[in-house]
């Protein structure tokens, strides 16, 4: 449009514009792809290390870990060389083993709506205890100083050293659903002692754990063998 009004800029042949765009496009493509190739293995290694560290944190005593994929109602080890991010509809859990190679438990990711945004956690399930044995908040934007105590508060974290999630006789539902109770009134192993001043965030953790365990426990609890055999 500007050529119409001001005659000053000389007519540029279309092929020159194409040449410029294609040239720049090639250069940029080359740069991006080479950097991508260079950094991908490092990033994958970082991711794997971060994941392993988180798994060790929620499964006390674990010294090695292995990724499993759910296939129907069983679990199979993730084949080597699979992409490091789960595909659509693929569900992964992470088994942890102690130094002797005995199964410590399985780490599971869960998420739910918190006070400000989605909270993502990783929790460890111990088969022996039928309980949650550890919890790590992977992602949260809870209010600093109040809601973010779910990550730091030692008293609150103690809740997840042995949080009972055992199944009832039918094997389909929890014998005692997880409950969040006011601070200082915890009496049973399936209750979470809330943080004063961070009630909504505490309830959010309880809620997302309850939902996730209700889904996973009936599938996971009877399949202990899947994780042990493959060692």
């Amino acid at each position: 449009m500007s050529e119409m009004t001001t005659l000053a800029p000389p007519e540029v042949p279309t092929w020159r514009m194409y040449r410029a765009m294609v040239g720049i496009g090639l250069l940029c493509g080359l740069l991006i792809v080479s950097v991508f190739q260079l950094t991908t293995p490092i990033i994958a290694k970082n991711r794997a290390e971060a994941l392993q560290k988180a798994v060790f944190e929620v499964l006390p005593g674990a010294a090695s870990s292995k990724t499993f994929v759910r296939e129907g109602d069983r679990f199979v080890p993730l084949p080597d060389g699979a992409s490091d991010s789960p595909g659509v509809g693929e569900e992964r859990v992470y088994a942890g083993y102690d130094q002797g190679g005995a199964l410590v438990g399985v780490a599971i990711e869960a998420e739910g709506m918190g006070y400000a945004d989605v909270i993502k956690v990783l929790y460890g399930y111990g088969f022996d205890q039928s309980a949650i044995v550890g919890l790590k908040v992977l992602e949260s934007k809870e209010t600093p100083g109040l809601g973010d105590k779910i990550e730091k508060d030692p008293a609150f974290r103690e809740n997840f050293q042995a949080l009972d999630v055992s199944l009832d006789g039918s094997g389909k539902a929890a014998s005692h659903p997880i409950e969040v109770v006011p601070h200082g009134t915890k009496t049973s192993p399936w209750q979470i002692d809330a943080i004063t001043g961070a009630t909504i965030s505490s309830k959010a953790i309880g809620g997302l754990l309850g939902k996730s365990t209700a889904y996973w426990m009936p599938i996971l609890a009877p399949r202990r063998g899947d994780f042990e055999e493959s060692r």
Partner: peptide, 14 residues
Amino acid sequence: FIPKQVRIATFILV
């Protein structure tokens, strides 16, 4: 080398 008309587009690409 860049014609004036496609200037901004190339800048953004870079």
